[in-house]
Amino acid sequence: MNIAATSAVEERAPVTDAAGQPILAVKNIEVIYDQVILVLRGVSLNVPKGRIIALLGGNGAGKSTTLKSISTMLASERGKVTKGSIEFDGERTDQLTPNDMVNNGMVQVMEGRMCFGHLTVEENLIAGAYTRSLSRSQMREALDQVYHYFPRLKERRSSLAGYTSGGEQQMTAIGRAMMATPKMLLLDEPSMGLAPQIVAEIFEIVRDLNQKEGVSILLAEQNTSVALKYADFGYILESGRIVMDGPAKALAENKDVKEFYLGMSSEGRESFRNRKSYRRRKRWI
């Protein structure tokens, strides 16, 4: 991380496809849990270096499963990538462990902001640097950089994480991941259960991290409107398949996306009921 380079952020060229130099390439993966439950059926996606890519979809679509396949956390849940391949930074990840992935520069921030509740906020952050060997002063510096992005965490540094608010826990989880100085973050539903203004605050920080630290981000979200506002490109996942993809702007303006993921409709609300082929989403807006 480098605060010095925070000055003028250049306006980036809009992404028109997810080609470009990929830091992550997921090719046609199939994932099976417990040897029988087929959850992903041929998912492919690319994350170009330095971009924010959104993975959208409703409950049970397979977003978390996709992220866990990428971070190799899947194995500990008795899941297995049975077909296809995942390449991170030019290396296949089949034989790697979560520990290797963090060492290679990828950290997953899991769904439900899993902080260490009995550790203080600062201890949570320090634990995030577990894979690095830092001197006392380097650790101080790394913490200060996280506090620079998350000033709220500085105020709460000595509180037990379990007693902080939902937003603060989400910030702790993201800040903790940043302590490993990752090249790429996998964020699983950072907006979950948070008030809109907290969601906005967190997404602004995520965008900052992306632009100033150059961290590539793959973002799984049900909150389509927020995700598309901050992402460059999006994929829509339904029942374990990518059903649509495109630049974030184009997706946000797409008629079907508007209707079924953003809860807006030009023809009026009635149209949902006539389209049984789309499952209703629990949370749209």
Partner: peptide, 23 residues
């Protein structure tokens, strides 16, 4: 110690500890 912190982290949540690379 660092290992001690890792240990307390693991004690708090296996999955979360694993996700940040604690072996």
């Amino acid at each position: 110690t660092k290992v001690g912190l890792g240990l307390r982290a693991v004690a708090d949540g296996h999955a979360a500890a694993m996700s940040i690379g604690i072996p």
